[in-house]
Amino acid sequence: MAVGLEGIGRLLIGAAVVLLVLGVLFLLLGRFGLDRLPGDIVIRRGNFTLYFPIGLMILLSILGTIILNLLFRR
């Protein structure tokens, strides 16, 4: 199945919109103080910092599951 340039263009625009929404979401989460939740792992060693946001990932997973269940409910 061949995809024309029009299909590729729509795919790229859709991907850009998704990235824009995710970017705005993360900016808003940071402003509301949800960038550091309980359960997040931060390791600092000299000039190296590892930040692993387990609490934020769990929260986003729960919210995503609820939203997708509401959208795709039959």
Rank of each mutant, 00 (worst) to 15 (best):
residue 63 L to H: 09
residue 51 Y to N: 06
residue 43 I to M: 03
residue 7 G to T: 05
residue 57 M to C: 09
residue 42 V to K: 08
residue 62 I to C: 09
residue 68 L to R: 11
residue 69 N to K: 12
residue 10 R to H: 11
residue 35 D to V: 03
residue 63 L to M: 14
residue 66 I to D: 01
residue 52 F to E: 02
residue 59 L to V: 13
residue 25 L to S: 13
residue 46 G to E: 01
residue 58 I to M: 15
residue 17 V to N: 10
residue 57 M to I: 11
residue 73 R to S: 07
residue 11 L to A: 12
residue 2 A to S: 13
residue 51 Y to D: 07
residue 6 E to H: 11
residue 73 R to Q: 10
residue 18 V to F: 14
residue 34 L to E: 07
residue 6 E to V: 14
residue 56 L to E: 11
residue 2 A to E: 15
residue 29 L to I: 15
residue 57 M to A: 09
residue 16 A to Y: 02
residue 5 L to P: 08
residue 68 L to I: 08
residue 39 G to P: 03
residue 64 G to D: 06
residue 55 G to P: 00
residue 11 L to T: 05
residue 73 R to Y: 12
residue 24 V to T: 12
residue 4 G to S: 15
residue 42 V to G: 03
residue 47 N to L: 03
residue 24 V to K: 06
residue 41 I to S: 00
residue 33 G to F: 08
residue 1 M to R: 14
residue 34 L to C: 10
residue 10 R to S: 13
residue 20 L to Q: 06
residue 47 N to H: 05
residue 56 L to V: 07
residue 50 L to A: 03
residue 61 S to E: 05
residue 52 F to M: 10
residue 51 Y to S: 08
residue 74 R to I: 03
residue 57 M to G: 12
residue 12 L to P: 02
residue 28 L to T: 09
residue 18 V to N: 09
residue 5 L to Y: 14
residue 47 N to G: 06
residue 49 T to N: 02
residue 2 A to M: 14
residue 33 G to D: 03
residue 48 F to K: 08
residue 11 L to I: 06
residue 45 R to Q: 11
residue 35 D to Y: 07
residue 46 G to H: 02
residue 47 N to W: 04
residue 71 L to C: 03
residue 33 G to Q: 06
residue 14 G to E: 06
residue 21 V to E: 05
residue 40 D to M: 09
residue 45 R to P: 00
residue 21 V to Q: 01
residue 54 I to C: 01
residue 13 I to T: 14
residue 18 V to Y: 10
residue 60 L to Q: 07
residue 13 I to M: 15
residue 32 F to A: 14
residue 4 G to F: 10
residue 28 L to V: 13
residue 71 L to D: 04
residue 61 S to I: 01
residue 51 Y to C: 03
residue 25 L to N: 09
residue 17 V to M: 10
residue 30 G to A: 09
residue 72 F to M: 13
residue 5 L to E: 13
residue 16 A to K: 08
residue 60 L to V: 08
residue 39 G to R: 02
residue 44 R to T: 13
residue 50 L to S: 00
residue 12 L to W: 06
residue 61 S to T: 13
residue 41 I to L: 09
residue 26 F to R: 03
residue 57 M to E: 06
residue 34 L to D: 06
residue 12 L to H: 05
residue 49 T to V: 13
residue 13 I to S: 15
residue 52 F to I: 11
residue 46 G to F: 01
residue 30 G to Q: 05
residue 35 D to R: 08
residue 65 T to G: 10
residue 61 S to P: 01
residue 54 I to W: 10
residue 10 R to C: 05
residue 53 P to I: 01
residue 40 D to N: 15
residue 47 N to E: 07
residue 52 F to R: 07
residue 10 R to M: 12
residue 18 V to W: 12
residue 4 G to T: 15
residue 25 L to M: 14
residue 8 I to D: 00
residue 30 G to R: 08
residue 66 I to A: 11
residue 34 L to H: 10
residue 6 E to P: 02
residue 22 L to M: 00
residue 42 V to W: 00
residue 29 L to D: 09
residue 8 I to G: 00
residue 63 L to K: 04
residue 41 I to C: 00
residue 27 L to T: 09
